[in-house]
């Protein structure tokens, strides 16, 4: 049971790190990134493949962050020219391209068979101690992420990206280039997603392309909408609600007889969708309130 909660805790914190990136990108800057999972995937594969080649984990994690961040650069350049809705579609397309590339480039990623045997963190500690050490490490990284995002949000940089969210042309009229800020925001959020991906890969030790479908992106979106867009506390609380719901529905399967795993997966997605609809109808600002209620 304890192992179960540690496992849930690790996955939840990985989602919190993902939510922090999206909080920066959408909550503060207004960038509709529907391709978050693409950066998560780049981080996961980068660190997994490097680690399997014998690269120390500290370096493979750094490479995961760097490569995911780097991948956001061209997306940032595109975002300068696109309207919000087109940008959303481009990012969604980007994450699907990432998934297709890792599916088809078998020489590198082993295609649909995926990458097995990814080294665990703290493997030498063994069993539950190692698990706990992983939890503590993810928690520490999450807290650093929280600190960074809060620091940005409360700074002149944060003020300006909120201004961009509220009115981009007015920012230009004041002599500031929204493009520069948007690129940085995308890169930072993507680097966080890359780190989350690395933790994910080394935690579950076996990654396949199908783990990186757009549903992951939309879970993160649900988390920040339920928690409260543009708030760090919202990202955390929203992820907690999401995990409760996803995991709670897993328990339901054990209680309700005659429901298959496949049925349950559909029911779960439907239920989470319903939850999201209820939130948007009855508490659009999320549990923690959004940026409109300061």
């Amino acid at each position: 049971m304890e192992a179960y909660f540690i496992a849930i805790g690790i996955i939840a914190l990985i989602y919190v790190i993902l939510s922090l990136g999206l909080t920066l990108q959408y909550g503060l800057t207004g960038l509709i990134n529907f391709g978050h999972v693409g950066f998560f995937a780049i981080g996961a594969y980068t660190s997994a493949l490097l680690a399997l080649k014998g690269v120390p984990l500290v370096l493979s994690f750094a490479a995961a962050a760097a490569l995911a961040g780097l991948a956001a650069w061209p997306i940032g350049l595109v975002s300068l020219r696109l309207r919000d809705d087109y940008f959303a579609i481009v990012t969604l397309g980007f994450s699907e391209v990432v998934r297709i590339v890792i599916t088809s480039e078998r020489w590198l990623t082993n295609g649909v068979q995926g990458v097995p045997g990814i080294p665990r963190l703290y493997d030498s500690l063994g069993g539950s101690v190692a698990q706990l050490a992983v939890l503590v490490t993810v928690l520490a990284v999450t807290l650093v992420g929280v600190w960074i995002i809060r620091r940005i949000a409360g700074s002149p940089f944060g003020r300006l990206i909120e201004a961009i969210r509220d009115n981009e042309e007015a920012v230009q009229a004041l002599g500031k280039d929204p493009a520069r800020f948007k690129i940085q925001v995308l890169v930072v959020g993507a680097a966080l997603a890359g780190i989350a991906g690395a933790f994910y890969a080394h935690y579950i030790t076996y990654i396949v392309p199908d783990q990186f479908i757009p549903l992951v992106t939309f879970y993160v979106w649900m988390a920040i909408i339920m928690g409260g867009v543009g708030r760090v506390s919202g990202a955390i609380v929203g992820t907690a609600i999401l995990m409760l719901f996803l995991e709670g529905s897993r328990f339901l399967r054990d209680i309700v007889p005659g429901v298959s795993e496949v049925d349950m997966a559909s029911v779960r997605i439907g239920a989470v969708g319903l939850l999201l609809v209820l939130f948007i109808m009855y508490r659009p600002q999320g549990l923690m309130g959004d940026y409109t209620k300061r």
Binding site: R159, E162, A163, R165, D166, N167, E169, A170, A173, Y291, T292, R294
Partner: peptide
């Protein structure tokens, strides 16, 4: 038409 940063 004023373009204030309305949430600020």
């Amino acid at each position: 038409v004023p373009r204030e940063f309305r949430h600020l």
